[in-house]
Design a protein around this nucleic acid. Sequence first.
RNA 1: GGCGCUAUCGUCUAAGGGUUAGGACAAGGCCCUCUCAAGGCUUAAAUAGGGGUUCGAAUCCCCUUAGCGCUACCA
Length: 493
Amino acid sequence: MSEVRTRFAPSPTGMLHIGGVRTALFEILMAHHHGGQALLRIEDTDRERLVPGAIRALIEDLRWVGLHFDEGPSFDEIEQADSAPPEGTGIGGPAGPYVQSLRLPKYKEVSERLIASGHAYRCDCTAERLAAERDAQTANKEPVGYSGYCRTRGVPAGVPHVVRFIIPEDRAVTLRDAVKGDVTWEKVILRDPVLLKSDNFPTYHLACVVDDHDMRISHVLRADEWLSTAPLHLLLYEALGWTAPVFAHLPPVLGTDGKKLSKRHGATFLSNFREEGYLPEAVLNFIALIGWSPGEGEEREIFSLGELKQRFTLERVNNAGGVFSYEKLKWMNGMYIRALAPDELAKRLTPFLERAGLVVDNAKLARIAPHVQERMELLPDAVPFIDFLFKESIERDMPSMLKKGMDAPTAETICTKTAEALESLPAFETPAIEAAIRATAEALGLQPGNAFLVIRIAITGKKVTPPLFESIYALGAPQAIARLRETAALLTT
RNA sequence: GGCGCUAUCGUCUAAGGGUUAGGACAAGGCCCUCUCAAGGCUUAAAUAGGGGUUCGAAUCCCCUUAGCGCUACCA
């Protein structure tokens, strides 16, 4: 295979969708597996739906999730194309500009060429006329589409017009798709689609063909929904005398109801996942496994980006759509959280703790991090487990403390004796704390578990916490002892 | 309606003519255990239906059914 070049070509009409993330991932996996380049190209040809700031958000999202393109819009290009100011650096590259609104002359030139060669024509039909045609066709139960009225009218360049492509009659077109196999259309039913709009911007069809050719794209990986328009693209390559790239239409990412993933299924934008405390590594790993699998008896599911690049091939891309399972993503996120070095986890936890209104003490966080690690699926899961460390005063779940045969006087004694035991500790460290507490429980003739529950609630306020002795160690002697004495006082009143 | 795509446990998927149809998530059970987890072991769970081809079909072909996509001067 000669040089492999792929492109991710989102339109800046909003936030980056999780399905888009998978396409972007596959573009990179494909290119890098073969030692080629993956480019980022902005398809901002729809002026109506353009969202200011979307290009910048897109690039930030891609960066956060760890997807880095080899070529893409430069800082200057972004500045020209997006009214919101760009931040950070652009990407750049030799095949730019990588923003379609900056490439208008190219599309114009190609459409003129197509008119000259008899493959396209100018059309000045009004929206009303087109609507009337469509209505008539629907009424007669005919397939809808432009009639070709202007094909032979010779509309001059001077009047407002669009440029339409002439779909040859009775032409069978076969696409050799890298994932779908051979797909044949006996008759292309698209009828003279618009190539160049009246505002001089190209439609997707013209722009992507021109740019993919211009940027020497070897493999076009794109969503399934483009399959129906693929014959048009093939015909365009043919009319232009260009060699078409290899096409690979990717299966859709679905919601639990089998419909395209949307807001009502849960998080869909990449930024949602970020806010909800998913790790970018986990998101990438998980989304890679929808529509692709390593196969060949491989039963691992956890792969780094590098490992994915090593293994990815188009042959292993599935053709059926896959449901996006938040449950499994959460599990995988938990796996990634557990694999984090504790100080790295502490770092990633900090913004979520602060967002919960806590003032983070880094020393305490470092001490507890290894012990919450295996109790979490999402980053914010840590908050209720460890917020007791960062609060001046805590609310205690007294009803849970005094259940199952535990009475207030006994609980009070446990708290007092434990406080005393902790006070007399020469070194306030986990093993010593454990020994002291176990000894206290034994001296009182209590089941350790029962005593632990009292102490747990006395110190953390809750019945579900990280391991008790580690929690006490993380809190520190003065606060731990104070909380025990507070609880004892509470129990005597 | 037309054109096209798709079809293995509830979900993601493996098995590219011969397997007790494998793994993972979720669910159930057991073990471990200071709570909650994590971890280990384990149970249940699938080839949409019907025809072919073949000694033999989840796998190849056809039909049916169901789902999805497209059918714009949106991408």
